[in-house]
């Protein structure tokens, strides 16, 4: 089964052709990162404008690189949400237009479900699994007893981890996107600055307290005219940020005994995480290749395949995009109507 998938939820315009939920024939990603770097973060109106400029060329390139005729496409899948609504609607309308033009069924896919299924590009998912989604927009822990069944165990109560990374990086003048730069800088420092120990009950996360603590610490050091070693700040923040991730995920592993832990989202590329995770968690860990950690359409195509297996019915052309979308158990396995 050949699937053409579209992802425009934030600042990447992406179209992919995937096959049977396992093979990626093409995955074209047009990144706007250079534009948004000028503003120190993603500007939603500019993101929408750039999607309109790039979208048809990205379609063409994805189809050309896949080397299959359009008649061989069996399904169109598009990110329905969550994300920036103006950006989502460019991809959704492009996908609908393409599907109608070629008389191909279309379905919407949840962006986070896409992130989880990005792992299917490497090897089949094994259930039950635990999925940890860490990115600029999300910090979520999800339990999956089988394909397309989701139980959200926890989420961030305020900022996403990647968002906190970007904000602290900005305080240290590291530029945008600051997450990977902060990660690099942290390796040369020591976690010598005391950080609050955030330990929430259950499986939720919280990053605003940590971020405010860094702001206050930097402010106090500057007032006392004491030298600030940015690498130590970075290292202290990073250690504390991941302590929460390690602790909450470990609790879930002990309770749910998953066959594997799947990590996805942009922060899954973090080096500190990759060095420490195997000593912290005693469970098989899957991380998709870096190109599938970031937002991309191939992951949407992977998820779409399994969604279609559960409920092989195309949606009508009146579905909307949603900036916010909750997980509802069995949503997507019963079609569009239950998703709200």
């Amino acid at each position: 089964m050949n699937i053409l998938s579209v992802e425009t939820s934030c600042d990447e315009t992406s179209v992919a052709i995937t096959q049977d939920g396992t093979r990626v024939l093409s995955n074209v990603v047009l990144s706007q990162i250079k534009t948004h770097a000028l503003y120190g973060g993603v500007v939603p109106e500019i993101a929408s404008r750039e999607h309109v400029e790039g979208i048809t060329r990205v379609f063409d390139q994805a189809i050309a690189e896949a080397g299959i005729p359009k008649e061989a496409i069996d399904l169109v899948a598009v990110t329905q949400g969550p994300g920036l609504i103006g950006s989502l609607l460019v991809g959704i309308n492009a996908a609908k237009a393409f599907a109608y033009a070629h008389d191909i069924p279309i379905i919407g896919v949840h962006h986070i479900v896409g992130h989880i299924y990005a792992n299917a590009t490497k090897q089949p998912l094994e259930f039950p699994l635990l999925a940890l989604i860490i990115s600029g927009g999300h910090t979520e822990l999800i339990y999956m007893p089988e394909h397309m069944r989701f139980e959200r165990l926890g989420k961030t109560q305020d900022d996403a981890i990647g968002e906190a990374y970007d904000k602290v990086a900005r305080l240290l003048d590291l530029g945008y996107p600051g997450g990977p730069k902060l990660d690099q800088l942290a390796h040369t420092g020591t976690p010598s600055i005391p950080m609050p120990n955030v330990a929430l009950d259950g499986y939720d996360f919280s990053y605003s307290g940590l971020k405010s603590h860094v702001i206050n610490t930097l402010h106090n050091l500057r007032q006392r005219r004491e030298a600030i070693e940015p690498s130590d700040v970075a290292s202290s923040f990073q250690t504390a940020a991941f302590k929460q991730i390690f602790t909450q995920t470990q609790k879930a592993i002990e309770t749910f005994h998953p066959k594997q832990l799947v990590i996805a989202g942009g922060v899954a590329g973090n080096q500190y995480l990759r060095t420490h995770m195997h000593t912290v968690w005693d469970v098989p860990i899957q991380i998709p290749p870096l190109e599938y950690c970031m937002d991309n359409a191939a992951m949407i195509g992977m998820a779409a395949y399994y969604q279609w297996q559960q409920h092989p019915v195309g949606w009508t052309f009146d579905f909307n995009g949603h900036a916010r979308m909750d997980f509802i158990q069995k949503a997507y396995t019963e079609g569009e109507e239950v998703i709200r």
């Binding site: 929408s48 404008r49 999607h51 309109v52 048809t56 609607l89 237009a97 393409f98």
Partner: peptide, 20 residues
């Protein structure tokens, strides 16, 4: 204008003109 809707009509028109 920058009414969000303007992009939808333009995107569908671009896609269809190319695909057809």
């Amino acid at each position: 204008g920058s009414y969000t809707g303007v992009r939808m009509g333009v995107v569908v028109a671009k896609m269809w003109a190319k695909e057809w």
